Every structure is written in structure tokens, then in C-alpha cells.
Simulated scan of single mutants.
Amino acid sequence: MNNDITSLTARLLAHRWLPRNDAQVRRALVDEAFRHEIEARLAGVGLELLDNPFAEHVAVGLKIDVHEAVFGGRDYQASTMGLTRDEIALLIVIWALIILPKRERQLGRRTREDDGQNDMFGQEKPIVHGEEVSGAVSEASLLADFGTQLGGRTKIRNFALGKLARLGFIERRGGYIVEGPLLDVLLDYRVLADRIINGTLADVLAAAGRALPSQIDLDEDVLDEIDDAELEARR
């Protein structure tokens, strides 16, 4: 057991994220004692395991009680992985266009090709991860819709998207942007979803002709459904 704990801890530190279907990661998700040891070792160096059961990967991040020690006294970009305000805004737009529709499909137990209308037992299915539920955004369309507001098309194409890809938030494939390992792990759905759907960004996306899921409303029933799905994903 100790060898597996050491190996998984080292791999998490070296790679920053690992797929949740990795054998050792899967053990950490279902074996309470094993996970406790992993979390204890990470906590010893100010880190914690980041696990979102709707995401395809797990990751490591700083514990909140060491944020001040790590970022205190440094400039704004130190606490935002080196991203500028325009790049953060671009990241949030991409998150809204990819993760919000993805989560709606996951909660409805649907894939991108399945509207769920003919599935009487859809809610009994396990949560789906990966490309079956996570869509893509056209780079050309993104630049046309938001290039002016987010620093200019050249800056976005040549710099911002490349930085988001290097950090693990997105992947660029043949002119399309798809979800990277960290997009659904580091950005908190519970915090962002309601603010986006009911906030200013919803108007910005609507003006660009980008429809957001209309059925996601973080009332108590949906929060309970997310909690149930999280418990199911840990089994």
C-alpha cells in the first residue's frame, strides 16, 4: 500500500493532473483509507487533491490556508497562474460554452448525439465523461464573436489560446477548442454557473448568438441532484 501511495503522490506532483480512470486514482476515489493517506501526504506540503466527479481528471492544488504564504505580497498574476484579465475572461467564456452544456447532458444522462427523449431509464445510467458529453468550440467562431472584447483576434489566436492550452485548461484540435484536463476541475461549477446564467456574461453570450442551457438553475433540487451524482460517481 505504501508503494502505491508514494507512487500516486509523486505522479500527481509531477504531472499536476491524472485521468480518473487511472488504476491508482480510481483506488483513491473508492478506498477511503488510501485516499486519506494521499490527502495527508499532499497536505504536508500545502496541497490538496482536487476531485470533481463530473470531470475526467483529478488534480492537485494549493490548500486555502497557504494562499497568503504563497501569493501574499506578489502581483495580481501570481494568484491567477500568470493569466491577464483578458485571458481570464476568455477562459470563463470558453468554460461557459463547453462546461455548462456538458453538465446539462451529464445531469440528464445524455450524450451529445442523444436528446434523451426515448430513454425511459436515463437517470439510472452512470455519469458519462469525455468526448461523449463534452463538445467543441470553433476557434474562428470564437474569434469572430469575442475577438474585439477580449484583446483582439491576433492576441487571442497567437498568445491567449496557447497559454490556456499549456496550462491544461483547453486543447486545440484542427481549429477547434475542446476541454482540457483542468477546465472542469479548477473552475467551480457551483460558484460560476448561476453567476453566468443569471449575470452579465449571459447577455454577452446571447448578443454573440451563443445560447446557454436554459434548464440549469441552481435551485435546491438541482443542487441535491448534483450531490447525488457526486456520491454515485464515487462508488
Rank of each mutant, 00 (worst) to 15 (best):
N3H: 03
N3T: 05
D4S: 09
D4L: 07
I5H: 13
T6D: 10
L8Q: 04
A10F: 06
R16M: 03
L18S: 01
P19H: 05
R20P: 03
D22K: 01
A23T: 00
R26K: 03
R26T: 06
R26N: 06
R27P: 00
L29T: 02
L29C: 06
D31H: 08
E32V: 14
F34W: 10
R35W: 03
A40F: 13
R41M: 11
R41K: 14
R41E: 09
V45P: 00
G46L: 04
G46N: 07
E48V: 12
N52T: 09
N52Y: 13
H57D: 05
H57E: 00
V60E: 02
G61F: 04
L62N: 09
L62A: 12
I64D: 13
I64L: 14
H67Q: 08
E68A: 13
G73W: 07
R74L: 15
D75H: 12
Y76E: 15
Q77K: 13
T80R: 15
T84D: 08
R85V: 10
D86Q: 15
E87N: 10
E87I: 08
A89S: 15
L91R: 09
L91T: 07
V93K: 07
I94L: 15
L97I: 01
I98M: 10
I98H: 00
L100K: 01
R103C: 00
E104A: 03
R105G: 01
Q106R: 06
Q106S: 03
G108I: 00
R110I: 01
R112T: 03
R112F: 00
R112K: 08
D114T: 04
F121Y: 02
G122C: 03
E124T: 07
E124D: 07
P126E: 08
P126Q: 04
E131K: 10
E132S: 04
V133W: 06
V133R: 02
S134E: 13
A136I: 05
A140R: 12
A140I: 12
A140N: 13
S141M: 15
L143W: 14
L143Q: 11
A144C: 05
A144V: 08
F146A: 05
T148Y: 07
Q149D: 13
G151I: 08
R153W: 07
T154I: 14
T154V: 14
T154S: 13
K155T: 15
I156W: 12
L161D: 07
L164Q: 03
L167C: 03
G168P: 01
I170F: 00
E171Q: 10
R172M: 07
R173A: 00
G174A: 06
Y176H: 06
I177H: 02
D184I: 04
L187F: 02
L187V: 06
Y189C: 04
L192A: 07
L192K: 07
A193Q: 08
A193T: 02
D194Q: 12
D194R: 10
N198D: 12
T200N: 13
T200F: 15
L201T: 04
L201E: 05
L205G: 02
A207L: 10
A208Q: 10
A208H: 11
G209S: 05
G209D: 07
A211R: 14
Q215V: 01
D217Y: 10
L218R: 12
E220W: 14
E220A: 15
V222F: 08
L223V: 13
D227L: 15
D227M: 14
D228V: 12
D228Q: 12
A229H: 05
A229I: 04
L231R: 15
L231E: 14
E232H: 02
A233H: 06
